[in-house]
Lab assay of single mutants.
Amino acid sequence: KTVHVDGVEYRFNNPEEADKFVKRLVKEKNGNVEVRGDTYHVE
């Protein structure tokens, strides 16, 4: 899984860790998540 945040790319081998990371980011930023294939885009 890959997570894109503000143009920075984070790669996770463990999908659960990627999910936790995304949830935390969305809370912090009050942002939205767009999923494209295996990539999460957080804005």
Rank of each mutant, 00 (worst) to 15 (best):
K1L: 13
K1R: 11
K1G: 02
T2Y: 05
T2A: 03
T2S: 08
T2M: 06
V3G: 00
V3E: 00
V3N: 00
V3Y: 02
V3T: 00
H4W: 15
V5Y: 09
V5H: 07
V5D: 01
V5G: 00
V5C: 08
D6Y: 03
D6C: 15
D6S: 01
D6P: 00
G7Q: 00
G7A: 00
G7N: 04
G7Y: 01
V8Y: 04
V8T: 06
V8L: 05
V8R: 05
E9M: 05
E9F: 04
E9R: 03
Y10N: 03
Y10A: 02
Y10V: 05
Y10H: 10
Y10I: 11
R11N: 07
F12R: 00
F12P: 06
N13T: 10
N14E: 06
N14W: 03
N14P: 00
P15W: 12
P15G: 08
P15C: 13
P15A: 14
P15E: 14
P15F: 08
E16C: 14
E16M: 04
E16T: 04
E16V: 03
E17T: 02
E17H: 00
E17N: 00
E17V: 00
E17K: 00
A18G: 02
A18C: 10
A18Q: 03
A18Y: 12
A18M: 08
D19Q: 04
K20C: 15
K20V: 04
K20L: 11
F21C: 13
F21G: 08
F21D: 09
V22D: 07
V22K: 07
K23V: 10
K23I: 04
K23D: 12
R24K: 14
R24M: 13
R24S: 14
R24H: 14
R24D: 15
L25N: 02
L25D: 02
L25R: 00
L25A: 03
V26W: 06
V26F: 08
V26Y: 10
V26T: 07
K27T: 09
K27Y: 12
K27R: 11
K27D: 13
E28T: 06
E28W: 05
E28F: 05
E28N: 05
K29D: 11
K29W: 15
K29G: 12
K29E: 08
N30F: 10
N30E: 08
N30G: 14
N30C: 15
N30D: 09
N30P: 04
G31K: 06
N32I: 14
N32E: 08
N32V: 10
N32Y: 14
N32M: 12
V33Y: 10
V33I: 07
V33R: 02
E34W: 08
E34M: 13
E34C: 15
E34H: 10
V35L: 07
V35T: 05
V35M: 08
V35F: 06
V35K: 10
R36M: 11
R36G: 09
R36E: 11
R36F: 13
R36W: 10
G37N: 08
G37A: 04
G37F: 11
G37K: 07
G37W: 12
G37I: 11
D38Y: 01
D38G: 05
T39V: 11
T39Y: 10
T39G: 12
T39A: 10
Y40P: 09
Y40N: 08
H41K: 07
H41V: 12
H41W: 15
H41A: 09
V42F: 12
V42L: 05
V42A: 08
V42E: 11
V42Y: 08
V42W: 07
V42P: 10
E43P: 07
E43T: 14
E43V: 14
E43S: 12
E43L: 12
